[in-house]
Design a protein around this nucleic acid. Structure first.
Length: 414
DNA sequence: TCTGGGGTCCTAGGACCC
DNA sequence: TCTGGGGTCCTAGGACCC
């Protein structure tokens, strides 16, 4: 018996969920069986590949590339738009099944979970993983890969082996045979930049990395060098963090504009519309923000940011938006703006708010207004109250975040 | 190659304190 | 006023993850 960890990974998550939803709603084509992708809207410059089917992989289509480029590789490519709120339902349904097998589950992302399966035999782990895999496939209609090991890193690495609808193991003694031959960029935490630096050091496989000198890596890559060296040797002692134990450190909202904006007021309006999505999220999480930062990407794709830390933490829309617009004015040099973002950090719990000598007196009044608007929007829909500035404006009143408008309630089996 | 959006953590330099 | 070291906080940018 030993400690067993599972990593559950939905195969081509967004694409599979779109496919299942379509099948359950009368369509006959299964997107998973043809070259297809989930992609953004090129008209509004959100046109990249978010997820791809396995058949589309044969055309060399990659996540993150432009729809234009994907269509060049495969003119018959079927493109469907994302449905974020439906994905959340599908993810919740999967979690409900997983909870029957372990009380300690870490939701790593919308389509990945770690499960602490406690002490058990390898035979039991194998059978349990296969049972979970089959249940998800049969009850929910989509497939998962499950990776089994004694720690999170190895479990995650093994769920990435052959897909779809598979269970793999990666125990310590299997590392050399199953993981070391892989190209180094397949290791968790080795992205394109690090892979390039490693290649320059003649490190091409995970095995090369595992056999290299950690002090040399540290010299070139700082702390990151030690981290990936340890990962290459399968060393990782992180625990499965149960839900609710992970505090949110920051939250943000950003959007690419449909065309480059060149005037200050339109940019302010975009910031306000981002805030109309972001600040209610902050309040819903019962958090207050102390640090506010704004990000500008210009038409030459250069990104700059600036931030400020207030002497008090707040969830007031008017305070946060006023500061955001001020920061924009300080940062913007007049270049055409392609993308705008706001984010909040240094979040504090609302319930333990400390009174500050420097608290803004406008706060009290604004608080009641914010609460009222939140309630109107809950009761009568998001568009019940919008800022006057957005009436007859080309800028949307809300931007970023989860798109709710085309959500259709899903039936109980997904 | 005409490149989304939401997060986390690390680094490096500077301010400021003792 | 200069020298020095350690600690903490803040800011801007960059790497990674999904």
């Amino acid at each position: 018996m030993e400690k067993i960890i599972f990593h559950v990974d939905v195969n081509s998550a967004y694409l599979s969920w779109n496919a299942v939803w379509d099948l359950q709603h009368g369509k006959t084509l299964d997107l998973r069986t043809v070259p297809s992708i989930v992609g953004g809207d090129p008209e509004s410059r959100h046109g990249i590949v978010l997820a791809k089917s396995i058949p589309s992989k044969k055309f060399g289509i990659k996540t993150g590339e432009t729809l234009f480029s994907a269509l060049m590789k495969c003119p018959d490519l079927k493109i469907v738009p994302p449905r974020y709120s439906m994905y959340l339902k599908a993810s919740d349904a999967m979690l409900e099944i997983l909870r029957e097998y372990s009380p300690i589950i870490e939701r790593y992302s919308i389509d990945e979970c770690f499960m602490d399966m406690g002490q058990r035999t390898r035979e039991d782990a194998w059978e349990t993983a296969n049972r979970i895999r089959e249940r998800i496939r049969d009850e929910l209609g989509f497939t998962v890969n499950i990776g089994i090991s004694t720690g999170k890193l190895l479990a995650k690495m093994s769920s990435d082996f052959q897909k779809p609808d598979r269970v793999h193991t990666l125990y310590r003694e299997e590392i050399e045979k199953k993981m070391w031959p892989l190209p180094v960029e397949e290791l968790f935490m080795v992205g394109p930049q690090t892979a390039k630096k490693l290649r320059d050091m003649n490190i091409r496989t995970i095995g090369d990395l595992a056999r290299s000198d950690p002090e040399f890596l540290h010299q070139r890559l700082k702390k990151h060098g030690y981290v990936i060296f340890a990962y290459a040797r399968g060393m990782d002692s992180s625990l499965v963090r149960n839900e609710g134990t992970v505090g949110m450190k920051g939250m943000g909202n950003s959007t690419t504009l449909p065309f480059d904006f060149t005037d200050r007021i339109s940019c302010h309006n975009v910031l306000l519309s981002l805030g109309e999505t972001l600040v209610p999220r902050l309040r819903e999480a019962r958090k207050l923000a102390r640090t506010i930062s704004i990000h500008i990407r210009t038409s030459d794709f250069a990104t700059t940011s600036t931030q400020t830390t207030l002497s008090f933490a707040t969830d007031s829309t008017s305070v946060l938006m006023e500061v955001s617009c001020q920061l924009f004015d300080e940062l913007w040099n007049g270049d055409p703006v392609r993308h705008l973002g706001i984010s909040f950090a240094q979040l504090e719990e609302k319930d333990v708010q400390q009174l500050s000598l420097f608290q803004d007196p406008r706060l009290e009044k604004g608080k009641r207004l914010d609460a009222l608007i939140d309630r109107l929007r809950t009761d009568f829909g998001r568009d019940a109250v919008i800022r006057a500035t957005f009436v007859n404006s080309p800028v949307k009143a809300f931007s970023g975040g989860v798109e709710e408008k085309d959500y259709v309630f899903m039936n109980s089996y997904l």
